[in-house]
């Protein structure tokens, strides 16, 4: 049971930060299907920096991870400029733009991973080997029943994500910038009338979204896969979007949904192990989060309330 929860949390935390990224973009009125691409590109930049730094700083140096995380935030933010330009400035169809951004991210990172590998090591490989981040157990707190799970075998990034998530929640619900951001997604004309700059706010929101998704990407690269390769595009970004939809574009609810996804995944995996089935069967259990997503989508898609103006480029002359 402990392992189910610990693994589940390790999976849920990056998913959650990506879902927050999605919420930021959509609440400001820009449909964001590009989460997958943002996280992949962020992870690519983070891993590239890590691979360059590792020979100098030692491969088990935990500082490398910190730098890599910052780099992935910047990478995700820079890459999200593409989506922001396409949607806000070029007024492209936001769904198309999201899909384009994802496909381009996969192509770009795959190609440049091989190029960078050849330049750095001389070997043709499409992987950056990273290793797994250390896991930390807090001595006293981990002994508390139930709550202790939050302090046992934690990846440090999970705490970092918790802090960022709270900051993101505060920014969105307790500051004037956050209020303006939410207004841009509901009634951009009103924002314009009160002297706000709709396009600028949306632009900033998409870039924040990219930075948050970048964190999610590098966390997966450092935990589940222990390397950066094209397999980072496993559809976690889309899972995050699904979590955002059930969470009704609300940060605390989305956190709960992400936890359910994480538990479904790790629970299924442990179930497979405990039943003593061959590794082939693990495929069937890895499928669980996706099946769960489909079922939940069927029940919740009709009832929830997406931001009213999401998906519509702002036109000042509209009513």
């Amino acid at each position: 049971m402990d392992t189910v929860f610990i693994d589940g949390l390790a999976f849920a935390a990056p998913l959650f930060i990506m879902a927050i990224g999605g919420i930021y973009s959509e609440k400001s009125g820009v449909t964001n299907l590009a989460v997958e691409g943002f996280q992949g590109f962020g992870a690519f930049i983070g891993s590239l920096v890590a691979v360059i730094l590792m020979p100098q700083m030692g491969s088990d140096n935990q500082m490398v991870i910190v730098v890599a995380m910052l780099a992935s935030m910047i990478g995700g933010a820079v890459y999200s400029l593409l989506h922001a330009f396409l949607c806000v400035r070029f007024r492209a169809n936001q769904v198309i733009s999201g899909v384009v951004v994802n496909i381009l991210a996969a192509a770009l990172t795959t190609f440049f991973t091989s190029v960078a590998n050849q330049a750095l090591t001389g070997a043709a490989s499409n992987k950056f080997v990273l290793g797994v981040s250390d896991q930390v157990t807090v001595p006293v707190l981990s002994q508390i029943p139930v709550l202790g799970w939050f302090f046992t075998d934690m990846y440090p990034y999970e705490w970092f994500i918790a802090v960022v998530a709270i900051a993101a929640w505060y920014l969105m619900y307790k500051t004037s910038f956050g209020m303006r951001l939410r207004a841009c997604g509901e009634n951009p004309q009103a924002v314009d009338a009160t002297g706000g700059d709709v396009n600028k706010t949306r632009f900033i929101s998409v870039v924040i979204s990219g930075a948050l998704c970048g964190i999610g990407g590098i966390c997966y690269a450092y935990s589940i896969s222990a390397n950066f390769s094209p397999s980072i595009y496993m559809g976690f970004g889309y899972l995050a979007i699904a979590a955002m939809i059930f969470g009704n574009w609300n940060i605390p609810t989305t956190a709960a949904v992400c936890l359910v996804f994480g538990l479904a995944r790790s629970g299924g995996y442990q179930l497979c192990l405990s039943m003593g089935l061959s590794s082939n069967y693990s495929d069937l259990f890895l499928m669980l989060p996706y099946v769960l997503t489909m079922i939940l989508l069927v029940f919740f898609s009709g009832k929830n309330h997406p931001p009213k103006a999401a998906g519509v480029p702002y036109d000042a002359s509209d009513r």
Partner: peptide, 15 residues
Amino acid sequence: FNVHEVVSTIMINYI
């Protein structure tokens, strides 16, 4: 059920 086809098709892809 108003399920967005981009999300559902991608989930079905993985399944």
